[in-house]
Design a protein around this nucleic acid. Structure first.
Length: 324
DNA sequence: TCTCCCTGTGAAGCATGCGG
DNA sequence: CCGCATGCTTCACAGGGAGA
């Protein structure tokens, strides 16, 4: 029985939570009758609960003084602790508070690359400025274009990550994802490039040029080089940059060419003297997706942020036809 | 299905204070 | 001092859930 078990050795699974509710009522009402009325028990039932609590806690808790019941020293000590503990339980069991964008003051940590920054942030920030003026987005650079930052999502450093992660990152079962759009690479070169003048470029001409490429990892061949090598082809890369953003001025001011995501190239073509052409080598399309940890799926604030990203993605013009 | 245990209810008993 | 009111405890019994 519980009354034989020292409190510090107590197994919580053997304790009826309702007993704590009775304890709270008894300590606050200082009357078995009023406590019973408050909790919805009969007076003898509450008296019985008090008896069990006395045995459990090894203290009378309430002592009769004439017509009144007075708290013992232990009862006085337990009152705020019991109230606080039950408040915690009530918070635990209460439905999560709704997320109100208009009044929310919250910061979202997003892992992303500069492709995602350029394509997602402007429209998303426009939405946030109108609907959630006190919400802050904090972007963190990710280490890979194609592998979601699982550890950062798992350990809560990122609320969300954006990248070419595809629909269902198979090795990352704890992650959930939603594809925002499909993306393909195009060939970009300076508008004044001396050798690339027509509306299209042949594979031979493309491979004969010197290239600039974005490379996130350190060392080893890039994805394009690996694919070309698999077909017995090569290209000469003169420059690897660490960001997509820096490759466009390089292309505009040199005779280098590059294979870059079409959506990003179209944005930069508005302000850089560069020209887009269809990529003359077969290269896979990528699914640009947002990824989050399944543990955070019930986070209403995060769900709101995802809905805003999805809304902007759906309303963005589709510049890339569906893959064949 | 049966048994045991826990917890609830109702009734009775007991303790205490108050007023006549 | 006695009767009454109030409130707590104890007892008997019933109902429900868990385990064999």
């Amino acid at each position: 029985m519980l009354d034989m078990i020292p409190i510090h050795q107590m197994n919580l699974s053997s304790i009826d939570l309702n007993l704590l509710v009775a304890l709270e009522a008894l300590l606050e009402e200082r009357s078995v009758t009023r406590a019973a009325r408050r909790v919805g028990l009969s007076q003898p039932a509450m008296s019985n609960a008090l008896g069990r609590l006395r045995a459990l806690l090894d203290d009378p808790l309430l002592q009769r003084r004439g017509t009144r019941m007075e708290l013992t020293e232990e009862g006085t000590r337990l009152t705020p602790l019991t109230v606080a503990a039950l408040a915690g339980v009530r918070r635990l069991l209460a439905p999560p508070p709704a997320f109100d964008p208009a009044s929310a003051t919250r910061e979202f940590a997003i892992g992303l690359n500069d492709y995602a920054e350029a394509l997602v942030l402007p429209g998303l920030l426009e939405n946030i400025a109108q609907a959630a003026p006190r919400v802050v987005l904090r972007g963190y650079r990710v280490e890979s274009l194609f592998l979601p930052p699982e550890a950062d999502l798992e350990e809560g450093r990122f609320d969300l990550a954006l990248g070419f992660y595809g629909a269902a990152p198979a090795p990352h079962r704890a992650l959930l994802s939603e594809v925002l759009w499909r993306e393909r690479n195009v060939c970009v070169a300076a508008a004044s490039h001396p050798r690339l003048r027509g509306r299209s470029v042949t594979r031979e001409a493309f491979l004969a040029e010197r290239h600039a490429a974005v490379f996130y990892r350190r060392g080893g061949p890039g994805l394009m080089d690996s694919i070309l090598a698999g077909r017995g082809q090569t290209r000469q890369v003169a420059c690897y940059t660490t960001h997509f953003a820096s490759i466009f001025p390089v292309i505009a001011q040199t005779e280098l060419v590059a294979a870059v995501p079409e959506r990003l190239a179209r944005i930069h073509a508005r302000c850089q003297p560069i020209r887009l052409r269809a990529l003359p080598v077969s290269f896979p399309e990528f699914e640009f997706a947002m990824v989050w940890h399944q543990r955070r799926h019930g986070d209403l604030g995060l769900a709101w942020l995802r809905s805003q990203i999805l809304e902007r993605a759906r309303s963005a013009p589709a510049t890339v036809p569906a893959s064949k």
